[in-house]
C-alpha cells in the first residue's frame, strides 16, 4: 500500500503509524479466523475521548486505502455529531479517501448502533463501534472466569438472565446488545444495535467487524457465518414489530416505509411520530416514490 510516501501533512496516512495498523490487521485476521472470539489488541490513544468510537475508528483507519469510499453513521444518521466528527477526522487524516452517505456506494461503513437497512454486499465491510465487548460481564465480574466460560461455551448464566426476563415480563426484554452466538460457539455483544439488526449478522455477505477502543478488543462475524440470537426453543427471538394499538404496522412519517427500523419522535404537543432511523434508506425510499423506477436513469 506504500501509504507513507503519500503523506503530505504532519501525520501518517490514516493517523496511526504503520506498526499500529499492522497490529490491528493481525487482530482482525485472528478475529475472522475465530468467529466471535474477542481478540485483545493494543488500543492506541486517539485524539478524542474513549467511548467516542475510538475502537471502530482504529479498525477503519487500519483497513482504509486511498481508493476507499467511506460512510460513517451514528444511530442510522450520517448527520449526527459523532458521525460528522469521525467523517471529518477520516477525511483529514486520509487524503484521497472519499466519503459518502449512500450505503450502496460505500466500500466501508463505520457505524454506531445500527446496521444499514440496505443489505451489504461481499465487497463491503462494516465496522461497528462497541462500548462493552463482553456479553458475560453482566453475570461474571472476573475477566479470567469469563474467558474460561467463553472457551467452554458455557453461557448458562446468560441464559438464566433471559429466563428471569421471561419470568418477570413474559418475554425477553433486551432491546439492544442482544447476545448472539456466532458459528455455534462464542456469544458476542453485537454492540448496541437494536434487535431489528441482529438477523442481518446471520449469513451476512459483508464482513462485520467490532472494535472496542476502551476495552481493547476486536471481534468479527465473517461473511456467511451463522449468527443466532440466544433464545429458548419455545420462546423464540423476535425483532421489534412497530405495531400501533390496532395492530397495524407503523409507517415512516417521511417516506411511508413499513419495513424499516423506526425512531420515535415526540412533538412538543405530546403527539408521537415515527420515522426511519436509517437516513440514507429514508432518502432512497423518498426518491423512489418521487421518481418511480425507470425515470431515475
Amino acid at each position: 500500500m506504500n501509504a507513507m510516501t503519500h503523506t503530505t501533512n504532519a501525520y501518517n496516512f490514516g493517523f496511526l503509524d504503520e506498526y499500529a495498523k499492522k497490529e490491528v490487521r493481525r487482530a482482525v485476521l485472528k478475529a475472522i479466523a475465530i468467529p466471535g472470539y474477542q481478540v485483545p489488541y493494543a488500543s492506541r490513544e486517539m485524539p478524542m475521548g474513549r467511548g467516542f468510537g475510538t475502537g471502530g475508528l482504529q479498525l477503519t483507519l487500519s483497513l482504509i486505502g486511498p481508493n476507499e469510499v467511506v460512510k460513517v453513521i451514528d444511530q442510522g444518521s450520517d448527520d449526527s455529531v459523532n458521525a460528522v466528527n469521525l467523517r471529518q477526522f477520516i477525511e483529514m487524516t486520509c487524503p484521497g479517501v472519499s466519503t459518502t452517505t449512500k450505503t450502496a456506494e460505500c466500500t466501508l461503513v463505520q457505524s454506531r448502533h445500527r446496521i444499514p437497512e440496505l443489505a451489504l454486499t461481499a465487497s463491503q465491510i462494516i465496522v461497528l463501534q462497541v462500548p462493552y465487548p463482553d456479553p458475560l460481564v453482566v453475570v461474571e465480574p472476573s475477566e479470567d472466569k469469563r474467558k474460561t466460560m467463553h472457551g467452554e461455551a458455557d453461557y448458562s448464566r446468560l441464559l438464566v438472565k433471559l429466563y428471569e426476563d421471561i419470568v418477570k415480563f413474559d418475554e425477553i426484554t433486551i432491546s439492544h446488545r442482544y447476545p448472539t452466538r456466532i458459528n455455534g460457539h462464542y456469544v458476542i455483544d453485537p454492540s448496541p444495535i437494536p434487535r431489528w439488526d441482529v438477523p442481518k449478522l446471520n449469513d451476512s455477505a459483508a464482513l462485520v467487524l467490532f472494535g472496542a477502543g476502551r476495552e481493547k478488543k476486536i471481534y468479527a462475524v465473517p461473511p456467511h457465518t451463522r449468527a443466532e440470537p440466544l433464545a429458548f426453543s419455545d420462546v423464540p427471538f423476535r425483532v421489534e414489530d412497530f405495531r400501533d394499538a390496532a395492530g397495524r404496522r407503523r409507517a415512516c412519517a417521511r417516506c411511508g416505509c413499513t419495513d424499516s427500523f423506526l425512531d420515535e419522535f415526540v412533538a412538543d404537543s405530546g403527539s408521537k411520530t415515527w420515522q426511519c432511523s436509517d437516513s440514507d434508506w429514508c432518502d432512497e425510499q423518498l426518491l423512489r416514490t418521487e421518481h418511480p423506477q425507470g425515470e431515475l436513469a
Binding site: 458455557d154 438464566v160 428471569e164 419470568v167
Partner: peptide, 21 residues
C-alpha cells in the same frame, strides 16, 4: 437470581433449551 433461576441455570448447563420444560 430467583430460586427457579438457580435451578434453571443448572438445567441450562445441560443444554435443556425449552423455557416451559
Amino acid at each position: 437470581i430467583s430460586a427457579g433461576g438457580n435451578i434453571a441455570e443448572r438445567l441450562l448447563m445441560s443444554d435443556l433449551m425449552d423455557y416451559g420444560a
